[in-house]
Design a protein around this nucleic acid. Structure first.
Length: 954
RNA sequence: GCGGGUGUGGUGAAAUUGGUAGACACGCUAGACUUAGGAUCUAGUGCCGCGAGGCUUGGGGGUUCGAGUCCCUCCACCCGCACCA
């Protein structure tokens, strides 16, 4: 029988499904292992070859672990709520539920073809009411809890009310945004509405007017991590800062724990760094400066309180509340002009021009609490409303930005740190001796920081404070396709949790998905749904994309439970995710939110572990290639003319056009003399009509003139290009669909090839060129089992030592490499093994059976076929067929290189079991060695068993 | 600017703790077979040199009998953050 992937894939896919081979039980004597993929958002364009990379790796690992005797949970589902489906709905009128269902069906079909061993009985979809019932449920738990900083855990709001009733809020150490303090009596005297307002400042899910990112084009607010470079992450639309009444999650309550517990998890260093930078902890002091004439106080945060004697001015963020109050009549005009200017500037402008300084003087003065100096108060863009208190003391002598500002506006600069003894030291180094600083003079910086902090605290003008960059997560979206808030408002606008037994609160049907007017969500249109008896109303915003994905890994443990998000038994059995595979793009979004939710659930005693993921493996992106071709300024007969990189360089052109192509169409890809194959140009004109009538000129003549008739002698070469690696996306027309590859080569070849491409965590451009090598390998493997006439033919003969050595070298290498997630080297090991067995003409069952077990996780379809041919009833990658635990290498002798002073002289075989001493002795006795050593003195001999022998002379 | 990472043939890449650099595969060259195909097989393939031999892991320096691997320094590229007080 010929190797025909198409037939065997269909057959085994069906068989696996019928026999529920990969269904996993929550009851097992075997140790548990949980392998999780980041579930996909089912987009309209389907999977491209980049998506399965991580899935293949995790599938290999899951299959391998099963064969090593683990009870492996390996589920899959869909992050099904989200913007694209809704945007599509707005354009086409197709209900998001419908398009999402279609996309999911397509994804499922694609996934099945690649042969994953998912337990589909546990599938989750975040848009399924049976699922989002529990998303809503967790939200309500967040709503009804607050964070007690003295116990370092979340507690029910009912207990907080009790504390307030007993002693007001002064003794409560909580994560909060409550400014006013009150006594027990004052609390009692508050109206229900007032009490509710206070409690909102403590709840972990709370509703408050805050400055948020508003995206006009998407008609919704966005969270910090959904904004990149002043543009929305989805769609790349401009965003602006706007105060709006929004739901938020108090993730800041968990900032310290999210930071500390990073030490417990096995994430890459860069991933941990990204998270800790995002959390952005800094130690410093909160300090109050009195304003002149008792006009109040300015609160600032500083990490460098020691520099206070150099504080020659203060700067408030333009949005700071005090600005209006303190601006003097004389400065009124200047300030409002400046505010108007700030208003015209987008977030992008603000970020792109960080070197430019601008600002305006309020006319007010603050008093330096230490020396009574009058300090002018300015406002400036470079101080951010969001960070710290939105106000700083400016120390131009020791801060780059403050210095620029002082220089521009002619403000005083007082040197306060003598760094002369530390040449090259920067401000961050915190080195130098204090000068011009009163009682701090002569101290080292670090000493001074401590001294002034003590002074500040004893004077009662401030205190030590830890500040975090992390902001609370904006949780409202003015969109339709998301989880409705299980919240209702009374006539006074007080938010009430819906009774838990009424969950899920389902999304109402709608046929117009456009945002309603005035920043209102589409749900506002569903008046029947929104308006409740007695003037009560529902929340019309929906939850953001990260809501459903923040806990989905828990649902897989007990996906059909109707009474809890997962049963206690299931949670206790599966505990946490042992291996989580996904891209780095979720470093500060999903991974932070889910860690936060998990910690909250842990505080409630609902999950057994502090952290959701033990180990995180980041797969690199598979990219497309973007080539640059150079556009000539002047047109030729009204047509665009493009020239190759070489010509462009000669003529000094820099004006290039980026075009997407596939690596396959680039000849000599990666080298400086790469050029485009004509096929690529033909593809190009299909994708980009503007190229259709263009003229292309290569360094050796014009190659295309409207029609594809290359001039000159070249047959298939085209433009010299200068390539960059870019993302694979529909927009760039460089997407490769896995179905096409699977159709042509088979799933096993596709899987192995993706692994063979390189280290799993590395980004790489998709390149089909090498896939034939893997296809060839599988045919070779197949041919070990079938004779020339195509008959299945394995022998029961006893394996030879050489055959055993080949096999066991492979077993050892592959098992070690799987455990360190080095899948590309596993594939190489298989190739070596099969090549050797082939040259040994080995068709012995004892060898082949072990080999099939090893290859099974990589090539499950082929593996399964061969496994059954060998006479087994059960599926290959079930726990029933464990791989050999250990390998034993059959070796009689080992070849040792012998060198003199590091220079290799000979290669000689010694017994494999020889000790260091014996090797040394045998080496010296060799005739050739004796000859080289004549008349020389041996200084020492270095013997590295199984590696080399080096004799040092002279 | 700060933080993290990477640099090895024409290409993707291998290389336990420092121990034969370039495994494996693509591509290329030559040949065999052939139903002429993008099939299969064999041999060759880091660079220089006719050769013996010499040179080679981004550049330079160091430690060592021995460095792709460790240390210093410079360069290039990629990723993340970025007026963070």
């Amino acid at each position: 029988m010929e190797y025909s992937p198409r037939d065997i894939e269909k057959k085994w896919q069906q068989w696996w499904e019928e026999n529920q081979v990969y269904k996993v039980s929550n009851n097992s004597d075997r140790p548990k292992y949980y392998v999780l993929d980041m579930f996909p958002y089912p987009s309209g364009s389907g999977l491209h070859v980049g998506h399965p990379l991580g899935y293949i790796a995790s599938d290999i690992y899951a299959r391998f672990k099963r064969m090593k005797g683990f009870n492996v949970l390996h589920p899959m589902g869909y992050d099904a709520f989200g913007l694209p489906a809704e945007q599509y709905a707005i354009q086409t009128g197709v209900h998001p539920a419908k398009s999402t269902a279609e996309n999911i069906a397509r994804y499922r079909d694609q996934l099945d073809k690649i042969g994953f061993s998912f337990d589909w009985s546990r599938e989750v979809q975040t848009s399924d009411p049976a699922y989002y019932k529990w998303t809503q449920w967790i939200f309500l738990q967040l709503f009804s809890h607050w964070y007690d900083q003295s116990l370092e855990k979340a507690r029910p709001v009912a207990e907080l009310i009790q504390l307030f009733e007993e002693a007001g809020n002064t003794s409560v150490k909580a994560a909060h945004s409550q400014e006013a303090i009150f006594t027990a009596q004052e609390w009692q005297a508050m109206s229900a509405k007032e009490k509710d307002d206070v409690l909102m400042n403590y709840r972990l899910a709370f509703r408050k007017t805050t400055y948020v990112w508003w995206c006009e084009a998407l008609g919704t607010v966005l969270a910090n991590d959904e904004v990149k470079d002043g543009l929305s992450e989805r769609g790349g639309h401009p965003v602006e800062r706007k105060p709006m009444l929004q739901w938020s999650l108090r993730i800041t309550a968990y900032a310290q724990r999210l930071l500390d517990d990073l030490q417990e998890v096995d994430f890459s260093e860069s991933m941990k760094k990204m998270q800790s930078n995002w959390i952005g902890r800094s130690e410093g002091a909160q300090l109050f400066f009195d304003l002149e004439d008792n006009k109040g106080q300015i609160e600032i945060f500083t990490t460098r309180a020691d520099t206070i004697f150099g504080a020659t001015f203060m700067v408030l963020a333009p949005e700071h509340e005090l600005v209006k109050e303190i601006t003097t009549a004389a400065q009124q005009q200047e300030i409002s002009d400046y505010l108007a200017y700030v208003n015209t500037r987008s977030e992008r402008d603000r970020m792109s021009e960080t070197k430019e300084v601008s600002g305006a003087f309020t006319g007010a003065y603050a008093i330096n609490p230490f020396n009574g100096a009058k300090i002018p108060v300015w406002i400036a863009e470079y101080v951010l409303k969001d960070y710290g208190t939105g106000a700083i003391m400016a120390v131009p002598a020791d801060d780059e930005r403050d210095r620029r500002f002082a220089e521009k506006f002619g403000l005083e600069i007082i040197e306060i740190i003598d760094k002369s003894m530390y040449p090259g030291a920067t401000i961050e180094d915190k080195k130098g001796k204090m000068i011009n600083s009163d009682f701090l003079n002569g101290m080292e910086v670090l000493e001074a920081i401590e001294a002034i902090l003590q002074k500040i605290e004893s004077m009662g003008i401030g205190k030590r404070q830890i500040n975090f960059k992390l902001r609370d997560a904006i949780y409202s979206r003015q969109r339709y396709w998301g989880e409705p808030f299980p919240v209702i408002y009374d006539q006074d606008g007080v938010a009430h949790a819906m009774p838990l037994e009424e969950l899920p609160l389902e999304l109402p049907e709608l046929d117009d998905f456009k945002p309603a007017s005035g920043g209102k969500a589409p749900l506002a249109r569903a008046t029947d749904w929104v308006n409740l008896p007695d003037g009560w109303t529902r929340e019309t915003d929906t939850m953001p994309g990260f809501a459903g994905s923040s806990w989905y890994f828990l649902r897989y443990m007990d996906a059909h439970n109707e009474n809890a998000f997962a049963s206690r038994e299931a949670l206790n059995y599966w505990q946490d995710v042992d291996l989580y595979v996904g891209g780095t793009e979720h470093a500060v979004g999903h991974l932070m939110y889910s860690r936060f939710w998990h910690k909250f659930l842990y505080d409630m005693g609902l999950v057994p572990t502090k952290e959701p993921y033990k180990k995180l493996l980041n797969q690199g992106m598979i990219q497309g290639v973007v080539e640059n071709i150079y556009l000539l300024k002047e047109k030729v007969n009204g047509r665009n003319k493009y020239i190759c990189a070489k010509l462009a360089k000669e003529r000094g052109l820099t004006d290039y056009v980026q075009i997407p192509v596939l690596v396959d169409y680039v000849v000599n890809y990666g080298s400086p003399d790469s050029y485009l194959n004509i096929k690529a140009i033909q593809q190009l004109t299909k994708w980009r009509p503007e190229f259709a009538d263009a003229i292309f000129e290569c360094s050796n003549g014009i190659f295309m003139d409207g029609v594809f008739t290359p001039k000159g002698n070249e047959t298939d070469s085209f433009l010299l290009t200068h390539s960059e690696v870019g993302k694979m996306s529909k927009r760039w027309y460089n997407v490769i669909n896995p179905d096409v590859v699977v159709e042509q080569y088979g799933a096993d070849t596709f899987r192995m090839y993706e692994m063979f491409l390189g280290p799993i965590d590395q980004a790489k451009p998709w390149d089909t060129k090498g896939i034939d090598g893997v296809a060839k390998f599988l045919r070779k493997l197949w041919s070990l089992f079938f004779d020339a006439s195509g008959q299945f033919n394995v022998s029961d003969e006893k394996p030879s030592k050489a055959e055993l050595k080949t096999l066991h070298t492979c077993i050892k290498k592959v098992q070690d490499d799987i455990e360190r997630f080095s899948f590309n080297t596993c594939v190489s090991a298989f190739m070596i093994c099969v090549n050797e067995l082939k040259s040994q003409n080995c068709n012995k069952r004892a060898i082949l059976e072990e080999l099939v077990k090893l290859i099974g996780p990589f090539a499950p379809f082929t593996g399964e076929e061969l496994w059954h041919r060998l006479g087994h009833e059960s599926a290959l990658c079930q726990a029933s067929a464990p791989v050999l635990n250990e390998s034993y290498l059959v070796e009689d002798s080992i070849q040792y290189p012998i060198s003199i002073n590091g220079k290799k002289r000979d290669l000689i075989a010694f017994p494999a079991d020889a000790s260091k001493e014996e090797l040394e002795k045998m080496a010296l006795e060799l005739e050739s060695v004796q000859k080289w050593l004549e008349g020389k003195t041996v200084r020492k001999i270095i013997v590295v068993p199984k590696r080399m022998i080096n004799i040092v002379i002279g």
